[in-house]
Design a protein around this nucleic acid. Sequence first.
DNA 1: GTCTATAGGCGGATAGAC
DNA 2: GTCTATCCGCCTATAGAC
Lengths: 253, 253
Amino acid sequence: MTAARPTVSLPLRTARPAASRAAPAADAAGARAEPSRGEASRPEPLRAKTPHRLRRIAEKRTAILDAALSLFSRNGLHGTTVEQIARTAAVSKTNLFYYFASKEEVYVGVLSRLLDQWLDPLRALEVETDPVEGIRAYISRKIRFSRTHPEASRLFCLEVVQGAPLLRPELETALKQLVDAKTEVIAGWIAAGKLAPVDPHHLIFALWATTQHYADFAPQIDALLGRGLDEEAFVEEATRNVQRLILDGLRPR
Amino acid sequence: MTAARPTVSLPLRTARPAASRAAPAADAAGARAEPSRGEASRPEPLRAKTPHRLRRIAEKRTAILDAALSLFSRNGLHGTTVEQIARTAAVSKTNLFYYFASKEEVYVGVLSRLLDQWLDPLRALEVETDPVEGIRAYISRKIRFSRTHPEASRLFCLEVVQGAPLLRPELETALKQLVDAKTEVIAGWIAAGKLAPVDPHHLIFALWATTQHYADFAPQIDALLGRGLDEEAFVEEATRNVQRLILDGLRPR
DNA sequence: GTCTATAGGCGGATAGAC
DNA sequence: GTCTATCCGCCTATAGAC
């Protein structure tokens, strides 16, 4: 039965519990902590861990998550086997199950790192900026993100297209909060006559859509042009065109 | 092994062979014919079929494809079971296998109907039109397509994001041909000074991206606004905003 | 912590009667 | 053409030794 979706929840970047965790869930370097679900925790050696051990553990978890991101983004949750993830991360399948209780826990782990990264460019959109410069820079950052994190962009897309069962709560809280704040910024710019009166939400959708398109629909673009974001010149070309279109529109001035 | 992708090819709308087909592959009403692959055809009763029987067969195949589209678009190829498709189409699993040799053949069948529909709005973009009106109408048609065929839009997205292994050949031929023709039209408009000088390919990408976004990222939009394309007022609002943005841009005139 | 072996179930596909 | 019964491989997850 695949209709039954994961029952695991996604506690990304809610106040970090700061306590020592159950299981080897010691993420380093910006990675999120794992949900400490009630029942059925991992074997868990209870004695204190040396910093060194913690680092080793975190590295291994990160390697697994990296491998998983790459595979999930190409084949989806159900199109990826634990065996593949393990092989790609250079660990044994059994060993992977020592670090993650289930395939879906790996999937959740990958998703939680995702949204955070995905939101970063938007966070940088500030009131103080000149609107036109702000938008221009945002487009540039977003396309650059599509270039440097194509797999993250694609997996995010896959997840949302399929209904975002896991991400939903986060979209309604963290994302909404951020978007609400930024739409106010934009509305302010419009009220000041610095931008044409476009609905801020639809503007944000258009920005997301046009910039992510280069990562998400890369195969289509490659089929049509034989080029893609791996080519620096194409990155600049895409950026220029999107900026031009969004800022000045099609109608000749 | 899920890494090994389907080996079936996608012969959509290449000159219809017009001959009677092997197997019950008698599609009616705009549906495409099935690939007549060399080996291992279906049981196939060889005697002539009455129009009535042909219709019954076509109807059943269509019902299966419809059910499959709906499920594939939500759960992906690997996230959907044949059992689910059969149940949704109100046939038995065994019976489904009478009409389609494998799950992947169903998948291919769904995809072949897809691209054709997906291309229709672009076909309607004509030289004779006034550029601004032409673009405006195209945006409207595309968003309306996102509304009336959300599942098709999403499955197309899913397939392309995952590398378009099956669609690739079609993208490089049928799609490319059409896009090449239309970029010429657009280039002509620009040369005539009727549109601002934007690269026609990037313009098309922006048009696709902004309009499909409303179908593909519907869950995200719903999480943010609590609205979607099912609401007619929202369709109009989205259309207006995208038209405005693409045609006139953000910078105040 | 890491391994070998294996349980256990799901799901795609076929056999063969009717 | 449609059904019942069933096969069998693949894949998640665990047991238990080291």
